[in-house]
Design a protein around this nucleic acid. Structure first.
Length: 461
RNA sequence: GGCGACAUAGCCAAGUGGUAAGGCAGAGGUCUGCAAAAUCUCCAUCCCCGGUUCAAAUCCGGGUGUCGCCUCCA
């Protein structure tokens, strides 16, 4: 298993801290709005990381934070004229719903920042005591100069970035790179009591506390979007090193950005889509296929055409699997003693820093084989393998609901009845009527396929 | 100013030294009352220039172009 580690900027062999176990932390949302399609990429990708390690037999502990206190939440609370905690709760629930709709498996722990306030304050206190942080009139800053390793994750030289960078002037900081650990509350803002007066945590602190609480001082993989490398993860790591002398995580994985029609997504460009919006139009499999068809570290361009292509591509998988009885496939999958070559190839692809694009190509080979192999056993095996491997990418979670054979019996009987009438019409060469029946059924989502052996039908989309 | 990524067929996209996976679209054949579906077949020499090598999309140097981070951001 090779992973690209942002810290070393190279692929490294993955060696877990404890054999057979994976401790994984990926940054979750700040709940001030519905999350957007770019966030979805990160959530889906780390869901695949988790699923694949589980497939490999690892005992995975996956933790994802929900940051529910922050400047943006306060702004949104003012905009919606609601208390901040109601806004946070609203969007935290929406986050959980949308993740579920995207087929993202629930992390083992999803702690909230406001539930860990005592630990956050404790962490800041320790940093102050150790001389890595200082207070200025109710604000507490991390002293970046106190830590020689500062900048080692993102590869930044502190001095370099000051010239020409858009660093806001803040005269109370000792150094422009110093960041806020605790922020004094202004009148009307939410606050918690602390040794430095009433205030709230700065960004970066909550992730350190929550990740270490569930995973230990230093864990295996820390993930998030590429934009989090600096400052967020650099600052998290700085706190961890100052606290324990050890880096927060051994491997840092970052997914690339999503652009809309070649441009960065932003509200001002009016090319901002929430995952919720996109889920209205496309199914989760299509969205997932779209993301996984490109390597996770590359930037990806979002267009509707591409999602539609992905949807069509996924249809091939469904057709391949639908050709077999689900119970038969489960039987085959359960009895499988030896892995076939396709599965080994799939693992090779995934073991090479999650080459999901290549892995998907192998699924297509399996779909092909499920139709073309010389004997029925071979074909069934290919379909069963396709189903099983596809699931490690999070595909096929909605199979049942869209499969014709899962419909209530009455609906099925009615369709068979109608098809019987159409068959009569065709016998009488009443093409006008038979075509009308076909078109009308299609209009309500039932697609007909005539074949010499009879008429088949299935649900479309 | 500092740091980084990318450039492969109409579109998307794998491929890090041995003569280009896969998907979508397209073309043609079979099948069909028609259509859809199914099925078979076809469709690139890898941004430019130079270098290393028996051999490069793949390594090195130089261009050109696109994008991102350094401020909240997945």
């Amino acid at each position: 298993m090779k992973l690209y580690n942002t810290k070393s900027r190279s692929k490294e062999e993955f060696i877990p801290l404890n054999e057979g176990k994976l401790k994984l932390y990926a940054c979750g949302p700040t709940v001030y709005n519905y999350f957007h399609i770019g966030n979805a990429r990160a959530f889906i990708f780390f869901d695949v990381v988790r699923r694949y390690f589980e497939y490999l037999g690892y005992e995975v502990t996956y933790v994802q934070n929900i940051t529910d206190i922050d400047d943006k939440i306060i702004e949104q609370a003012i905009a919606e004229e609601q208390p901040f905690h109601k806004i946070a709760a609203k969007y935290a629930n929406a986050f959980l719903e949308d993740c579920h709709a995207l087929g993202i498996k629930k992390p083992h722990h999803q702690p909230k920042a406001t539930d860990t306030m005592p630990q956050i304050i404790e962490l800041i206190k320790t940093l102050v005591d150790k001389g890595n942080a200082y207070e200025v009139e109710g604000d507490v800053y991390f002293d970046t100069a106190s830590l020689p390793e500062y900048g080692s994750l993102s590869g930044k030289q502190i001095e370099d970035q000051i010239t020409g960078a858009r660093v806001a002037e803040n005269l109370s900081k000792k150094h422009p790179a110093d960041f806020t650990l605790w922020k004094k509350s202004k009148p009307g803002e939410p606050w918690w009591e602390s040794p430095w007066g009433n205030g709230r945590p700065g960004w970066h602190t909550e992730c350190v506390v929550m990740s270490q609480h569930y995973l230990g001082d230093s864990f295996d993989i820390h993930g998030g979007g590429i934009d989090l490398v600096f400052p967020h993860h650099e600052n998290e790591n700085a706190q961890a090193i100052a606290l324990t002398g050890k880096p927060l995580a051994r491997y840092w994985m970052h997914n690339g950005f999503l652009n809309i029609d070649g441009e960065k997504m932003s509200k001002s460009l009016k090319n901002f889509f929430t995952a919720r919006d996109i889920l209205q139009e496309y199914d989760a499999d299509a969205i997932r296929h779209f993301f996984l068809s490109k390597h996770y570290r590359s930037p990806i361009d979002f267009t509707r055409e591409l999602i539609e292509e992905s949807h069509k591509a996924m249809q091939n998988f469904y057709k391949a699997i639908d050709a077999f009885d689900p119970k038969l496939l489960e039987d085959i999958a359960g009895k499988e003693a030896t892995m076939d070559q396709a599965e080994l190839d799939f693992q090779d692809a995934m073991n090479d820093d999650f080459n999901t694009a290549k892995a998907i190509a192998i699924l297509f080979d399996l779909a092909h084989k499920s139709k073309k192999a010389p004997d029925q056993i071979e074909r069934g095996r290919a379909a069963a393998t396709l189903l099983r491997l596809g699931k490690t990418l999070g595909f096929f979670q909605n199979m049942q609901s869209r499969s014709a054979r899962e419909m209530p019996d009455l609906s099925k009987s009615l369709i068979e009845l109608i098809l019987g009438y159409r068959s009569d019409a065709r016998q009488n060469k009443n093409w006008v009527l038979s075509d009308k029946i076909r078109d009308d059924l299609l209009a309500i989502g039932i697609e007909i396929k005539d074949s010499p052996a009879g008429t088949n039908w299935n649900l479309r989309k």
